[in-house]
Write a protein that binds this DNA or RNA. Structure first.
Lengths: 150, 150
DNA sequence: AGCTTAAGTTCCTTAAGGGAACTCTGCCTG
DNA sequence: CAGGCAGAGTTCCCTTAAGGAACTTAAGCT
């Protein structure tokens, strides 16, 4: 299939896709976050091909999103989120927010998120890191940054 | 390749991936958001195969993320974000935030975002829609929701 | 009448996903 | 201590999707 290499584009979206853009990768990350940390658990939960799961886990480890660590004297391993990986979960939370709103239908959200700070079932909202006001697609101007190509 | 159908899983992440999880789709969305709204523009900007671009655009239109509208009496069309699509751009902004932090390297961010409300170059931050406090991976408990499978 | 341009189609090659069977390693049980 | 078992992958074959170049179609322009 000779997939185009997104990682070398001067675009943080393309680079992020290079890390978790392959099919299944976000779901593998979700599983690890949700506590399915072992190969067999993830494979059984997702129904993913073992070959593809191996490839995805290796790639996520190479990218520093997951850490592979032994949990037994036998050759047994579990995968845990690194700090880099934990921050990627933000992306999943936004996907959940959008999916719950636009795709869940009458049945409602499959999973609810209870916020520790307030104890309420809630969802994420995007705010400006600088002023704290809402920050969405229409609230910003795009400017070339220091890492822009040419 | 007989890709697994994510859309029918009881998971908002999987369902969202069914809409924009295919290769190139987020970049197509980015281009439309950035003002590349025509087939030739997107194709030239991304270097994507025309065949794949056709498939992606059709899929995004079917999913209600983009609208295909004529802009001339000749058969000429442009693609514009629907409300559903505009809200998906939130996802791109979070990808940008993560990519800028973890993947941009010394060169820095390729694109900067200036927030209208405060006029500052900034980035997005995830907050609880209920209480306004930060809401990240470690700040929530997961509970089964009404749309949970079984 | 022929050229140009935007927006796709078609066709072929190559590589990636699906899925089942197989391997390898070390503990556990009789 | 032989055999079984379980976790974590590998290997192999088949099908399908991505790349890429060439071709098509439908106005409008010269």
């Amino acid at each position: 299939m000779q997939r185009t290499n997104f990682g070398e584009m001067a675009c943080s979206i393309a680079r992020t896709l290079d890390v978790i853009g392959e099919p299944w990768s976000p779901l593998v990350l979700r599983d690890v976050y949700a506590g399915f940390t072992r190969f067999e658990q993830i494979q059984a939960d997702l129904g993913i091909s073992r070959k593809v799961l191996t490839e995805r886990l290796n790639h996520l480890v190479e990218q520093g999103v997951l850490e592979r660590r032994p949990y037994d004297r036998r050759p047994r391993f579990e995968y845990v989120l690194t700090e880099k990986g934990t921050e990627l979960v933000d992306l999943l939370m936004v996907m959940v927010g959008w999916g719950d709103k636009w795709l869940a239908g009458q049945a409602g959200a499959p999973v609810l998120y209870r916020h520790h700070a307030c104890g309420q079932v809630s969802s994420v909202d995007l705010r400006c890191a600088h002023c704290g006001e809402p920050m969405h697609a229409g609230d910003v101007d795009l400017l070339p940054g220091p890492g822009a190509a040419i």
